[in-house]
Computed example of a mutant assay.
Amino acid sequence: MKSLTCAAVLDDHLLFADSFALLLQKYGTFEAVSSFSKVDDFLGFLQSFGDQKLYVFLDYYLSEGNGLSIFTDIKRWNKQAKTIFVTSAISPAVIKNIVKYKPHGIISKFADIKEVVKCIKLVESGISHIDPRFAALLTQPDKPGINLTPREIELLKYFSQGNSIAETAAKTFLSPHTVVAHRRKMMAKVKCRTIAELLTYARDNEVI
């Protein structure tokens, strides 16, 4: 494969981020690969990098947020970025939600290096790629209430950590009224009556 450009890896498990970055450097023929385990560090890098060609390998499950919300930031700040999700998710709801946001690629953390290189080649040629491991998941019928937005998933993560409405509002820079409105909307989607039921649903479907 011809030499590409720069790449960045964001995964809140530092050992994985560093190890995957080394593999990309060796087999992906990128000029430089940066690895990050903290969202703020990655976003700082993204803003300073500017609107240059960049490959981003992004985890879905992040302790400081959600990969889909980060994907939204990437698209806003760098129109040339190619984003590939690298995920351990096996839930049809999660994979379908990622696909809905149209990243350039999705690969499983259980994939071998050949699959990673194949994905990079296809994306470089302008073709989006989804790991074959997810094919069967995408054909399963939808369940009601799984259409949660990145913001809603982010709020669910804070709720699952025991944060109150006020604490969640402060951490997400929203008003308490807006947080309550989001929570009410999520509960209506999932058809549950309590926050405990909502969190149970989210965990059962591996949304958080």
Rank of each mutant, 00 (worst) to 15 (best):
A196N: 11
D112N: 11
S164Q: 07
C6H: 15
S48Q: 10
I153H: 04
N163Y: 15
L148S: 05
Y101E: 10
C192L: 11
A170V: 05
L198G: 03
Q47H: 08
E152L: 08
S19P: 07
H177Y: 14
K185T: 14
R76S: 14
A32L: 13
L138N: 01
L155P: 02
A111P: 03
N78D: 01
E64W: 11
P144C: 01
Y101C: 03
L23V: 10
F49N: 00
V86R: 05
F49Q: 01
K189T: 07
P150H: 06
S69A: 14
L4S: 13
K118V: 08
I90L: 06
V99S: 04
T5R: 09
K143R: 05
Y201P: 07
D11W: 10
K157N: 11
K114E: 12
I107N: 02
S91G: 05
S19G: 10
K75H: 06
F134T: 00
G44P: 10
H13Q: 12
S125L: 09
L14T: 10
T172K: 10
A170I: 09
T168H: 04
N97A: 07
S3W: 14
D112S: 07
T178V: 13
N97L: 07
G50R: 00
D112H: 07
S48E: 08
G145K: 00
K2M: 12
F71W: 09
S19L: 11
P103S: 06
A136Q: 06
P176H: 07
A93M: 01
T200C: 11
L198A: 10
A136W: 02
Y101W: 08
V99I: 05
V99Y: 00
L4Y: 14
I130E: 01
P92K: 00
L23N: 12
L122D: 05
N163G: 04
F134R: 02
A166K: 10
L46M: 10
Q161W: 06
Y55C: 09
L4K: 13
V39T: 15
T5G: 14
S88P: 01
H104Q: 05
A196G: 11
A136P: 04
S164E: 08
K82F: 06
V33P: 03
F30P: 01
D11Y: 14
F159V: 06
T29P: 01
S91I: 02
G162Y: 03
I90G: 05
T178P: 08
Q52G: 04
L15C: 11
F49S: 02
K109T: 12
F30L: 08
H129Q: 05
A81F: 03
L10M: 14
F36P: 13
Y101Q: 06
S88Y: 04
I195V: 14
P103L: 03
H182Y: 15
I208E: 01
Y158H: 15
N163W: 13
N97I: 02
N66C: 15
Y201F: 15
I127G: 03
L54P: 01
L199P: 03
K191S: 11
R183D: 08
K38L: 15
E167C: 05
Q25L: 15
F20E: 01
K100P: 00
I98F: 01
